[in-house]
């Protein structure tokens, strides 16, 4: 069971957290911008699923409900860092 160091709660077992999505697929676009449909679909469906470190969005859903950006190696499960989702964290 992995251990995530929640910036608000300290180290907690991963069962307290929910994986939400890969950071690559986050869109911070709210409205108005001239959207490209293909770009939008690629963001949703065609993110890179490489071996190695990924930036992932997790929620401490059974804890403080805070939102984290975790850099985690999907091969070794090594957690490089575990940061709060900051304002304007566009991929």
């Amino acid at each position: 069971m992995q251990l995530f160091n929640c910036p608000w709660c300290g180290p907690r077992a991963h069962i307290e957290f929910t994986y939400i999505r890969d950071h690559q697929s986050v869109s911070t676009r709210g409205n108005g911008d001239d959207p490209d449909v293909q770009q939008e679909l690629d963001r949703i469906y065609l993110r890179s699923n490489h071996l190695g470190p990924h930036q992932e969005i997790w929620q401490h859903s059974a804890g403080c409900r805070g939102w984290l950006r975790i850099t985690r190696n999907n091969l070794t499960h090594e957690v490089e860092d575990c940061l709060p989702c900051q304002h304007g964290d566009a991929p």
Partner: peptide, 14 residues
């Protein structure tokens, strides 16, 4: 969770 995600991650400016 859908609402929290959009408020906290996608559009924190709201």
């Amino acid at each position: 969770q859908h609402l929290e995600y959009h408020l906290e991650v996608a559009w924190p400016e709201l």
